[in-house]
Simulated assay, not measured.
Amino acid sequence: MLEHFALRHIPPLLLASIWTVGGTMSWTHGPEQAILTYGLSEKIASSKAAWPLIKIEGSRVTTIGLAIWGIYLGGHQEAMDTLLACVGWMAVVDGLVCAKDGAPGSAKMRATYQSVVALWGLLGMTSGKYF
């Protein structure tokens, strides 16, 4: 609910917007570019067999972004924090996959930013539950 807006809501809403739009990248900029942007190697990005998978992954990222916005607009900031905390699993998986198959630095970047998002949720920053 917008009447309950606080500055602490900006980071998760910015993330939700980035994920909502970013998840469409394989459709708007092509699957090869989306795979490279994700952080995987050129070898994987040029493999047409991987292209349907990045489209599927993108739909899930867009879904999470839309869910964050829907939860926020419904006034459920504690639920937003729960969803953001669950992003910790994405940090683990993305970090491991990018460490094995990604471009140099992609594992650290992905694991770091997603860990920050998960920590934000775990600390209840959106809802102001703990801070």
Rank of each mutant, 00 (worst) to 15 (best):
L14F: 13
H4R: 11
M125R: 07
A91R: 02
K48P: 00
G30K: 02
G39M: 08
D94S: 07
P52D: 05
G58M: 04
F131V: 11
L15P: 04
K100C: 08
G70M: 10
S26A: 14
A34F: 10
S127G: 10
H29K: 11
L36Q: 05
H4K: 09
T20S: 14
D81Y: 01
Q77M: 13
H9Q: 09
I44C: 04
R60Y: 12
H29Y: 11
E57Y: 13
E42A: 10
G70I: 15
V87M: 14
A91W: 02
H9M: 14
G105K: 04
S26Y: 01
H29G: 10
T112I: 06
C98N: 10
R8K: 13
A85V: 03
G22T: 12
S17C: 15
S17F: 15
A111G: 01
Y113C: 00
T28F: 15
M125T: 06
D101W: 07
M1T: 12
F5W: 12
L66H: 10
S46D: 09
G95S: 07
P12Q: 08
W120F: 09
W51I: 04
I71Y: 08
K129W: 09
A103H: 03
P12I: 12
G121T: 07
L15T: 07
G58F: 06
D101S: 10
G124P: 03
A6H: 13
L119E: 02
D81M: 07
A91Q: 03
G30Y: 06
G39K: 11
V97H: 01
I10T: 15
V87K: 03
G30D: 11
S41Y: 00
G30N: 06
A103Q: 12
